[in-house]
Structure formats: C-alpha cells, structure tokens
Design a protein around this nucleic acid. Structure first.
Length: 273
DNA sequence: AGTACGTCCTGATCGC
DNA sequence: TGCGATCAGGACGTAC
C-alpha cells in the first residue's frame, strides 16, 4: 500500500517530472465518489485554470497548491492514494491503462493520471487544507516528532501497539506493512498493549520506524526512473517475510500471521516479545 | 474517551 | 475448465 515512503516517492517523482508550473486545463473524474469535497462540478471548475505552485506531503496526503492567473492565491488539490492508488504523468496520446480512474489534463499535451484499482483513493479541493485533513502527527522525519511526544501517545493505551502505530494522529504516514517491519526490527510483539512498552522499547521502536522509512526512501531515490510506469507498493524486500510459511531471518523459526484490528499482521513469536 | 467492528471496492487467488 | 467464495486493507462511521 502506499505509505509514507511511497507517497513521498510519488511526490518527488511528480516534481522531477515537471508538474510544478503546469496548469490544469480540465479533469475527467471517472468515479464520482472519489471526490469528497466540494461537489464534483465545483471540484472540476475550481481545478481548471489552476497552476501547480508546489507539491507537498502531509502524512499520506499529497497537497498541490494551486495559483490562478499568475496569482498565488488558489485552492489546494488534496489527493489520498488509498490502498491501490498511483499517480503518473503521461503524454495525452498514450493509451490509458484500464486501472486509471481519473485524468487531470495539463497544458503541455500531458496528463496527470490517477490509477486506483479498488477505488479507495480520495480527492478534495480546499482553500485551506487544514479544513479537510484529519489530525496528523508531525512528520516522523521532522524534529517535532520527538520521543517524548511519541511516548505520551502510548500512555493509557491498552490497544495493541500495532493498532496504535497505525493511527495517523500518532505516526502520520505509517501503514500496515511498515508497522510490521518496524515492530520486527525493534523486536516487539504487535499485540503488546501500547502502554506496556518500556522507555527502551519505545525508543527502539521510534528508531526502527525512522530506519524503515529511510531505507525505503533511499531505495526509491536510487531507482526512481526504473519504477515507472509501475509505481512501487512497498520495499522490494521486507525484513519480515509476509508470505505463508515464511521463516524468521533471525532465528529461522516460523513466522506467525494473525489479524490485528482486521489487518494482516506478520511477526516472529520468538524474536518479538 | 478508548476500543472494536462494519463498510466501501475489485483484481487476484483458491477450492470444488 | 469454470465459477463462486474469499482475501487484501486506509480511513471513517457507528456502537458499546
């Protein structure tokens, strides 16, 4: 699934592909329910004529600040890729892949194409993105994401640490796969009550989350050009095997696959306590 | 307030 | 061979 590294990789790709400075000349929304706000009609109207000023990221949300007619005061296009979403810029004349649900026409004979097999992606247009974004923690890479604030969020939480990690208000950008990876690297069981983590464990977990995100981003930065037009959906190889009958790379024992909050969860019962 | 579960979606895979 | 059942899960709404 697109999680923090995949969304950030998409952002960097869009910038390298020259999206900033381009102007939207129209849009074809193939699945109306993807547009959350405003109405579909107003969404397309407000987008059209907007020039991309910058592309930023908040958690798993991509923000496209628009300007209108030379002015830098315009709405912001907000995109969430959901589970199967991917963005790419292609020539208008290039055949449209069957998974492409939405097309945003640009002023240079290209299109920003939004492929989204399961239609879990979301689109907004907002004058102020804060009006539509849910509460998000500081970016895990920022200095505001401190060990103290992370630990404060774990206090009083009896829910499994894995479930807490997935809350975007606690670790923005975290998703199912990187949560499993981080917990494996930290040697912590996904079902441990969050409040029961020691200072040492919380410290290790925070470091491992950053490490997992960083490793993925470095991998993407090395080979971004080779990833397109097929966007990546996670690390090329996880430390923790995700397939059935997988073996722990540490102890060689069998990996357990359980459900935590209806999420497939892989962990080593021997190495993760 | 915190926890848990159902809902939305469809391509891929599984079992009979 | 074919077809129905099952699985995958991010975020949100609802219930307790």
């Amino acid at each position: 699934m697109p999680e923090l590294p995949e969304v950030e990789n998409t952002r960097r790709y869009l910038i390298e592909a020259g999206l900033p400075g381009r102007t939207f000349t129209g849009a074809d929304v193939g699945w109306a329910k993807t547009v959350k706000k405003p109405s579909l009609e107003d969404f397309v109207l407000g987008l059209t004529g907007g020039t991309v000023q910058e592309v930023t990221r908040r958690g798993k949300y991509l923000l496209f600040k628009l300007g209108h007619q030379g002015s830098d005061t315009g709405p912001t296009l907000v995109i969430h890729l959901g589970m199967t979403g991917g963005l790419r810029i292609q020539p208008a004349k290039q055949p449209v892949h069957s998974m492409v649900r939405h097309r945003f026409f640009l002023d240079d004979e290209t299109e920003l194409r939004f492929q989204d097999g399961r239609k879990f992606g979301k689109l907004w247009l907002a004058d102020n993105p804060n009006d539509i974004l849910p509460p998000l923690s500081p970016d895990p890479f920022s200095e505001e994401f401190t060990l103290k604030s992370f630990r404060d969020h774990l206090k009083g939480r009896s829910a499994p640490i894995k479930a807490v990690l997935l809350e975007q208000s606690i670790v923005s950008g975290m998703g199912n796969l990187y949560a499993d990876e981080s917990l494996f690297l930290a040697g912590i069981s996904p079902v441990r009550p969050a409040s029961k983590l020691t200072v040492k464990e919380a410290t290790r977990l925070k470091d491992c989350m950053i490490f997992a995100f960083t490793s993925a981003l470095e991998q993407y930065d090395r080979s971004r050009s080779e990833q397109w037009p097929d966007p990546p959906m996670g690390l090329s190889s996880w430390s923790i095997p995700r397939e059935k009958n997988g073996l722990c790379p540490n102890c060689g024992g069998p990996i357990s696959i359980i459900r935590v909050r209806a999420r497939g969860t892989c962990f080593c019962p021997k190495c993760q306590r």
